[in-house]
């Protein structure tokens, strides 16, 4: 169904349709292609998994009822496996319970057959945008991590205290080094993390979800 090489697709998002009904697959393919979207068709979850395209940019269009594991169960699997591929559900029934479950689990949209093409295209558009944004964020986070990994343990210590709002003097006192040495480490952190202000450093620390090391300990010590 698809070549093994992933890089060329990296640029253009793909709508991956999983539906066991061939007529539905073909109809969706026709519709999506007419608006210029790239489409891949799969008859089952297994077929999709076997194709190894979990990390491909784009979104999934999933039938709720699929042979074997249902679309909803598969979505749960994706969520718990930390796969953030956005999902648009299509169901033969306007089942409120099902749609609530799907939306709670983070689905982009839950549409009822026969689907209005504009609703579907809108949902797919949103899904693709969400996926793009998410991937962008992941990429940024990846870069930050790489930078952070380059810090020495002393630099990490200093960085944690800086983002916790301590002054150089306080930091020097807290970890028992001279203020000049703190300044040096602080300069290294800013350079290695590619930031120019403390505010920026705080934002990055948030993304890294760094826990501030016992912010209250200093006051008790003093």
């Amino acid at each position: 169904m698809n070549s093994h090489s992933t890089p060329p697709h990296e640029a253009q998002p793909t709508v991956m349709v999983i539906d066991d009904d061939r007529d539905i697959r073909e109809a969706l393919q026709g519709l999506l292609r007419s608006v210029g979207l790239r489409v891949e068709l799969f008859a089952s979850v297994q077929e999709f998994l076997d194709s190894g395209q979990l990390s491909r940019p784009g979104c999934l269009v999933l039938d709720v009822r699929l042979p074997g594991r249902s679309g909803l169960d598969f979505h749960d699997d994706l969520v718990s496996a930390n796969v953030h591929l956005p999902v648009v559900f299509i169901s033969g029934h306007a089942d409120v319970q099902m749609s609530v479950r799907a939306m709670k689990a983070g689905a982009i949209e839950f549409l009822t057959k026969p689907v209005r093409h504009q609703d579907l295209l809108d949902a797919i558009q949103r899904a693709i945008l969400y996926d793009g944004a998410h991937r962008e964020e992941q990429r940024t986070l990846g870069a930050i991590r790489t930078n952070f990994d380059k810090l020495t343990s002393r630099e990490r210590e200093v960085m944690a205290l800086v983002v916790a709002g301590r002054l150089n003097k306080q930091i020097a006192a807290e970890i028992g080094i001279s203020e000049a040495t703190v300044k040096f480490h602080r300069g290294q952190v800013m350079r290695k993390m590619h930031v120019r202000s403390v505010a920026e450093l705080v934002r990055i620390a948030d993304k890294l979800q760094l826990t501030h090391p016992q912010p209250q300990t200093t006051s008790t010590k003093v």
């Binding site: 109809a27 969706l28 026709g30 299509i90 093409h117």
Partner: peptide, 8 residues
């Protein structure tokens, strides 16, 4: 199912 196919 086929109705969905027709509309789409």
């Amino acid at each position: 199912q086929p109705l969905m196919g027709i509309v789409t």
